[in-house]
Design a protein around this nucleic acid. Sequence first.
DNA 1: AATTTTCTACAGAATTTCTACAAAATTGAG
DNA 2: CTCAATTTTGTAGAAATTCTGTAGAAAATT
Lengths: 231, 231
Amino acid sequence: MNISEQLMKVLIIEDESELAKNMISYLSDQNYLCELAVDYQQALDKINDYTYDCILLDLMLPGGTGMDILNELKNQNKEDGVIIISAKNSLEDRISGLQLGADDYLTKPFHLSELTARIYSVIRRRNFGNANVIEQNEIKIDLLAKTVSIREEKVMLTKKEFNMLIFFIGNKNKVVSKSALAEHLSGDLADMLDNHDFIYAHIKNLKKKLQEAGAGNYLKTLYGNGYKWEI
Amino acid sequence: MNISEQLMKVLIIEDESELAKNMISYLSDQNYLCELAVDYQQALDKINDYTYDCILLDLMLPGGTGMDILNELKNQNKEDGVIIISAKNSLEDRISGLQLGADDYLTKPFHLSELTARIYSVIRRRNFGNANVIEQNEIKIDLLAKTVSIREEKVMLTKKEFNMLIFFIGNKNKVVSKSALAEHLSGDLADMLDNHDFIYAHIKNLKKKLQEAGAGNYLKTLYGNGYKWEI
DNA sequence: AATTTTCTACAGAATTTCTACAAAATTGAG
DNA sequence: CTCAATTTTGTAGAAATTCTGTAGAAAATT
């Protein structure tokens, strides 16, 4: 996965609105997808709900400290990259932040170009470590090569089938509604909204291929609710 | 109080009719009950008259600004969840919106699946705190997997049964009238006058399944008044 | 042009939802 | 307390909805 070609999600935790504005503006221009939290609770909520490629964390927050957020990330075994942004260049803060699992540290004021450089390197570092291969039981998926193998045997999936499989595994143990699937597959939020029946065909084909290749029956139909990759 | 792709009331404040149409279509499909306001005055009227689980607020409105609506909600101590929907360029608005107490924001254009994810988060946080799993004595409900377990044993519920259970637990120790249940389950505000006897069947089925699975007898019938989840 | 993929149409299978009705339970008036 | 009116439960099954499988048309890719 090439960093520059992929949409990276960044969470900015910052209460100074002028700075936040500038950061969002600049990062958006660089094709980062930015979200903002302006206080401790909002930050916590976002962190609980989503996963970001990089979190920019101001340590001075209304309602709680940035350190608590770092702790929270650690407790939840979240693997979001974190860059601490702090007004004071205190050595203790810096060390304890890095010890708590932050990836980098930036002192205010900073140049925005410096910020993007750090974000880039944090994400690259993480993506290098992260395998491009997902293994779920007997199923092995190479995201780069876009291949799927079951017990070392290749399974030929079409593009849509592959996308579905990734989507299911990425949402394992969650119900995925038919319309969510449809939207995901069409990639278009336009008017695929009336008729989602084509999903039936794809589901059937995917199930059949997986089953013929000897995979376990993980893809369950939940009558009236959608589908679920259950593991 | 229901969650996820279940029946929740959502107010869409949006003047772009094409977008509004798509949102309504998609959200309705996910079992949200949608209402629309296309300008400032309509929005204000709706907000004054009803309570919504989540308000989707476009900041650019004919006749007034979305900020005024946020202020109005705050002044009235309304607790409706609010997700701001804004164009990419209005950064200041997004920031001050969050500072004015909006729960989240979304930048146009967005994926409808992203929208439902946000709505889900907002509603869940408001109704159940920050958890995708609700535990009530021996009953455990996973809102994302849409599963119910009793002492680690799965109980298979239909969609309506699941909705009822969530509704009861969200209104625990409160009397829920048969017609309220009926309205909640059917999602139709119109047919308040119809007969609601189908509720009997659902109640019976739910009670039976819970009882067979060994759950305590929490769902009480209050003769002539409705039902109550008593804990 | 040939092949593969994606989507649609439709029959019937499976499941859920709702209705009908008799029996049981509850309430309140006499 | 008794009885009638009302409401709820239980049983059964009809109606509606959703899903599967087959087949092939339309669209995309080679």
